[in-house]
Simulated scan of single mutants.
Amino acid sequence: MKAVVYDQPRRFAVTEVADPHAGPGEVRLRVALAGVCGTDAHLHDGQFDPVYPLTPGHEIVGEVDEVGEGVTDLRAGQRVVLDNMQSCGTCSSCRRARPAYCAHLVAQGVNAPGGFAQYIVAPAGKCHPADDLAPDVAVLTEPTACVMHGLDVLGLPPGSDVLVFGAGPTGLLLAQLLRHAGASRVTVAAPTAGKLEIAARHGADETVRMDRADPEAAVARLRELAPEGFDVVVDATGAVGVLEQCMPLTRDGGTVFVYGMTDEADRLTVSPYEVFRRELVIKGSFSQAYSFDRALQALRTGRVVADGIITHTFALDDYADALAALHDRSCVKAVVRP
């Protein structure tokens, strides 16, 4: 089969590798779509603990192609989405309901073969039937599951006034689910007008364009919307320059929610006195846990609307272009169709 294979940071090839086969308790999937995520850009640079040789791709929808011994609840030809994370269930982190910090974590697309390939083998129990969803909707399950977990961590008080920085895929998903989680108002701030239009179409109450040449105008507008600050300010960009704007725009007693993934070497200066004096809360959210089923249900019921999020589709041979699309302001979400 053909797959993207890295042998070191920033060096990959689209090459022929041996076809994988399903073992006991496993299925082989013919990959229909695999989403391109900002995490893949970090993996490209050697961050996020990749294991080589590496085939990335962790947002996967596919068709069951081969069924291993003992698998009775999946059938050939069935469309499924894959929860790419496998935890041991017995280490101290798993026993504390923190499977993403499992001491023996297997994360397909990070330290095990992922979905930027024609086929992938996975445990049957990690494959969720999705025949009722179109592939370009189902492929959003994993990022939606991450947002679901983020909301679990955030613990949003009902009636909160929320600001979301960023209108990429995660920002758009966050804005939608924050509304259903009880926010009284969701404001989305981002530099790209087209993405803000999608945010408004999906239910954002206010949108503010952050002109990179004149950010102060946008900050002034945000202060006008919330003179005392927002109850919750979410960074979904992973940009330190944006994170620096979060605390000043958070009201006393409010929460800064770090959702976007920065580079490992990035540093943010925070005044501990301000956190102390203003009783601020700073929270972070990593990956997903116990949220795949809920993500699928949100997509099925229309609580999460996929329309307009996927804008670019690439062949496997064009993986370099798919990575480059992450930095293209016209691209909301790119997917690879092996």
Rank of each mutant, 00 (worst) to 15 (best):
Q8Y: 09
T15R: 14
H21C: 12
G23K: 03
P24W: 07
V36G: 01
G38L: 02
D40C: 05
L43N: 04
Q47F: 13
Y52E: 10
L54S: 03
P56L: 03
I60T: 03
V61Y: 02
G62I: 01
E63M: 10
E69P: 07
G70A: 06
R75E: 15
Q78H: 04
T90D: 14
R96H: 13
A97K: 10
H104G: 14
H104A: 15
A107Q: 08
A112Y: 05
C127W: 04
D132H: 13
V137L: 09
C146D: 07
V153I: 06
V153P: 00
L154K: 02
D161I: 11
V162E: 02
P169Q: 09
P169A: 10
T170P: 00
G171F: 00
L177Y: 05
A181L: 03
T187L: 12
A189C: 13
A189F: 09
G194N: 03
G194A: 12
L196M: 06
E197V: 09
R201W: 08
D205K: 14
R212A: 12
E216V: 15
R221D: 14
R221Y: 15
L225S: 14
V232P: 05
D235I: 01
V240R: 07
V240G: 09
Q245P: 15
R251W: 12
V256W: 02
A265G: 12
D266A: 08
R267T: 11
L268W: 01
T269H: 13
S271F: 10
Y273G: 14
V275Q: 09
V281I: 09
S291K: 00
S291N: 01
A295H: 08
L296R: 01
A298T: 08
D307K: 12
A324L: 07
H327K: 10
S330R: 07
